Simulated scan of single mutants.
Amino acid sequence: MNKADKICILLVVVCSLFLYVPLYWIRMQEADKVKEVVVSFKNEEVLRVPLNKDETYYVSGTLGDVAVEVKNDAVRVEKETSPMHLCSIQGWVEQSNHPIVCLPNNIVVSIEASDGDEEVDTVIQ
C-alpha cells in the first residue's frame, strides 16, 4: 500500500462522513414530528390516521379491498388482491420517505410527518 492508496482511503472516509451527517440531521428533525399514515386511491386521499394508533383499516382498491395494518409506529399492506401480491411483500415501513405503492390496486400508502402547525404551501407561476 503506497501513499496514494492511503490518501484515497482517507478521502473516501471523509466524504462518507460528510454524507452521513446531513442524513442524521434530517432524521433527528423528523423524530419529534407527528406522523400520520396517508392512503390514496387514484391520487385522492381516502384515509388519514395517526401512526401510533394500532389498528387494521380496509380501503377499496381497483381489484378489491386492501387491508392496511398500523402497528408499533409502522405500516404495511397486510392483505390485498393482486396477481403477484407485490404490495404485501414490501413489508413494514417506518419512515416517511418509503411509500408502499400498489399499482394493480391504484393504492399508495405513505407516512407524512408534520409538526402540528398547518403551513400554507404555495406555488407561484
Rank of each mutant, 00 (worst) to 15 (best):
R76H: 06
Y24N: 04
N105K: 05
V77N: 12
F18D: 00
A67F: 08
V13A: 14
E80F: 11
E30G: 05
A67I: 05
R27G: 10
D65M: 08
V109E: 07
S40G: 01
P22T: 07
G61V: 10
I7E: 10
I9N: 05
C8G: 05
D32C: 02
Y57A: 06
V59C: 10
I107Y: 12
V70A: 08
I100Y: 02
K35H: 15
L23N: 12
A74L: 02
N43T: 08
D121F: 12
M28N: 08
Q95A: 13
V108H: 06
T62D: 13
C87F: 00
L103E: 08
D54W: 02
L11T: 09
S110M: 11
H98M: 10
C102K: 11
I7D: 09
Y24A: 11
V70C: 11
G91E: 12
V120C: 06
L86Y: 03
D117V: 15
L86A: 09
Y58L: 13
N105I: 01
Y20W: 13
Y57Q: 04
A31F: 03
H98W: 06
I7M: 08
N97V: 03
V37I: 15
E94I: 04
V13K: 10
E69F: 02
V12Q: 05
T62A: 07
V34C: 04
K3F: 06
S110P: 03
V46S: 01
V68A: 13
S96W: 06
T62G: 01
H85M: 11
C15K: 02
Y57H: 14
I26E: 14
K79C: 13
S82D: 03
P104F: 03
D54A: 12
G61K: 09
H98T: 13
V37R: 07
V46F: 01
T122D: 07
V21K: 02
V68W: 08
E30L: 13
K6H: 08
H85F: 14
A113K: 11
